[in-house]
Design a protein around this nucleic acid. Sequence first.
DNA 1: AGCACGCCGACT
DNA 2: GTCGGCGTGCTC
Length: 802
Amino acid sequence: MNIAKVIVDVPASSINQTFDYQIPKQFQGVLQKGMRVIVPFGPRKIMGFVVEFTSQTELTKLKDILEVLDLTPVLTNELLELGRWLAEETLSLYITALQAMLPQVLKAHYQKELIRLTDEEMTNELENFFAGRDVIPYEEVDHSPVSYYQLQKAVQDGDIAVNYLVKSKITKKRVTMIKPLRSSHLLEETLLDLSTNAKKQHELITFFIENPAPIEKRTLIHKLQTSNATIKNLVDKHILENYSEEVYRNPFDDESIVQTTALELTEEQEQAIIPIKEKIVANEHDVFLVHGVTGSGKTEIYLQAIQDVIKKGQEAIVLVPEISLTPQMVKRFKGRFGSKVAVLHSALSSGEKYDEWRRIHRKEVQVVVGARSAIFAPFENLGIIIIDEEHENSYKQEDNPRYHARDVAIHRGKNHQCPVILGSATPALESYARAQKGVYRLAVLEKRTNSQAMPEVEIIDMRKELHAGNRTMFSRSLKERIEQCIQRQEQIVLLLNRRGYSTFVMCRDCGHVKECPHCDIALTFHKNSNQLKCHYCSYEEPMPTICPECSSDLIRYFGTGTQRVEEALTQLIPEANVIRMDVDTTRRKGAHEKLLNQFANREADILLGTQMIAKGLDFENVTLVGVLTADSMLHLPDFRSSEKTFQLLTQVSGRAGRHELPGEVIVQTYTPDHYSIELASEYDFTQFYKKEMAMRKTFKYPPYVFLALMTISHENQVKVIQTTQKITKMLLDHVSDETVVLGPTPSPLARIKNRYRYQCMIKYRNEPHIRTLIQNIIQNFSEETRKDDLFITVDMQPYQMM
DNA sequence: AGCACGCCGACT
DNA sequence: GTCGGCGTGCTC
C-alpha cells in the first residue's frame, strides 16, 4: 500500500478523478486518508487530499508525494464518503465538495517565483530585472520590460528556473505570557533586595508570590495598573520571564455568561422529547419534525436532548440560521454546556473560524452551534443533529456545491445512526408533507411556555389609506399605536420587508429608470455616497442631476430603503427614538450586537430593520410589531413566495408580547385578502398548509415534484437561446412522459455582467437517471464550455430561481 | 484550472 | 531574430 490516490485541487471536470502518487519512505506509515498533501501536477505543485491507498496502478511511472501538510487527517473517513455523495447529489466536483467541508484557511494558495541558476552574464533586460537578486516573485514580470519570450528561452537554457510554491494562510494567534522565574520564597527574598522606591516592581513581585501561575501580559497590566516598562525591568533582571504562547481566539465574552440548568418541561415538551430520547438511547436514526409555535420552548427540548447525548459521550451539531445566530442564542448554549460548545458562523474572522474548527477537530468540544456549513463539523461520534428554524432559506448553499444542509444532516444522521431534529414554528412545506406521510415523526407544541396568547394581528389595507388621502408609508392606525406605545414607554419593532423593493431612480417627467449598463436591473441609490450602484456587478456611477433621456431635472429616487423610512418616521413622530438595522449600519464587526444591546437597554423606542430583525430576537418590553410592506415579496417570480410571506409574518408576530406584557401586531398590505397574509394573521398553519399544497399540486411544484434548474449563460443572446433550446430537447428525448421540461426561459435576471442568462426547468417525480442524464448533456457541451466561454450551471434543488 | 508547446502572423 | 496571440492537449 505505498501508493496514494489523491484528489487534486483543480476544479475542472476533466480532473474530477483520483491521481496516483508514490508515497516516499519517510511518509509511509504516517500518511493517512483525509490528510492534505502537496503533489507535483504537470509542471506545478498543488495541494490535494489523500482519499485512498493502493498497492497497484496501471501507470508505469508515478511521481512522489512532495509534502504532507497535516499531522492528523483533516477529513474523517465519513466526511470523505460524505463528500463523494455530496458531489454526486449536487452534480459538483469532488474537490469542491471537500473544500466546502473545511475552514477557508486550509485552502492552499499558489505562488510562483523565478530563481537565477547561472553565474554567467544574461541579457541586459534580464540582468536589470534581477538587479543582483537570486530569487524574485513571478508577478514582477508583469511590471517589467522583460518579454515572456526571453524568459522562456532563459528557462529552456537552464539559466532561470520557475519555482512553484504552495502556501497556506493559517495563522495561529499568540499572546505574550509572563511567569516568575523563581519560586515564591525566593521571590520574597528578592523583595527584600529591592529598592524601596520601586513601588510598582514591589507590587508585581508580591502578585507573583501569591499567584505563581503564568498570566497573560495584557491581563497583568490591566489588573495591577502597571506598565510594560516595569515588567521589562524585572524580565531584564531575570526575575520574570516573557514568552509567547499559542492561544485560540475567543470571539465570545465567556465571563458574562450565566450558567443555567435544565428547566422543568411542560407536558407538551415532555411528550415531544420522549421519542427523541428513546432514539438516542437506542442509537437509531430517525427524523423528527418539531412544529412548535414561537415561544413554545423548542430550544429547551434541544438542550435537554443534547444533555443526554453528551452524557453518553457523544457529540451534537446544532444548526441555526445565519441571521439568528445572535449572541443571545449563543449564550443559551454556552450557558448550559459551557466550554463544551464551539460556535461557527460567518461573522467570525477566518482565523476565529479556524480556531473553533480546531477545537472540534481536537475533540475539545462536544457541541457545535453554527450556520449551514457547521453541518460538516468533523465529529466522529455524533449523537444528534438539530436544525432550528428548518424552513430557513439560508440552509441552502447558493453556489457549488449547491447543497441543502437538511439533506446533509439526514445523510450524516444515517451514517452515525443518530436522530435528526427539525424544528420550526412554520415548517417548510416539504418537511411537513413528509411528516404527514409518516417519513418523519411529527411533534406539535401548541402552547407557549408563558401561556400568553399569540398577539392579536390587525391587517391594514393600504389601498384604503391611499384613498383616504394618506400618502405616507405609515397607516393612521400604525402611527397612533406607535405614539401610544411610546407614551407607555414600551418598545416597537418595525419590519421593512425590503426584498423586491429597492431605491431605484426614476424620472418623473418621462418615466425613465436608470439601469445598469451590464445587467438587466435597476441601479440602487446610495444616499451617503450619492452614487448609483449595481448589486450584481458593482458598477457605480454618480447620481445624475438631470434625466439622461429627456434632460428634465425632475429625476428622483423611489422605493423604500430603511434610511428613507427612518427619515419619514422621525418626521411623522418627532419624539420617536429610532435604531435602524440594515446592511449599512451592521457592516462593522460587533455593530449588530451593539445595536441590539442598545435596544435591549431601552435606549430607543423603535427598532427598524429588514429581515434580520424578524428572527429569534427576544425583548421583553416590545409590545408592538409593525410590518410596513407585508406583500413586497409576494409578487416575486418564485413559487415559494406565499410560503415565505406566511413564514415571515408568523415569525415577526412572535416578537411581540413574549413576556408579561401583551403584544399586538399591525400588518400593512396592498393585498389584504391573500391567503398567506390572512392565515398568518390567524396563526393557522394547518389551513395554510392545505391551501398551499393544493396550489403546488395544480402547478406541479415541490413537494409534488422534484425540481432541477439549468442556467445557461453567454455574451451572445442568440447562442444562449439556441443552446438552451438544444438542452431542452435533449432532456425531453430522454425523460419519461410524466416529466415536464420548461424552457428556454429568460432567467429572472436575464443579463448579469454582460452575459445573457436563459434557463431550463425540469419537474420530475420519478427519474432515477436524471443526474447521469444532465451530466451527459453538460459533457456534450464541454467543448463549448471550454473554448467558447459558455457557462452551464445546475441546481438540483433550486431555492432561488435567479 | 493552468501550463507548455507549436504554429502563425507581424514587425524590424 | 523577436515578439504576442491563439488553439490544443495534458496533468498520476
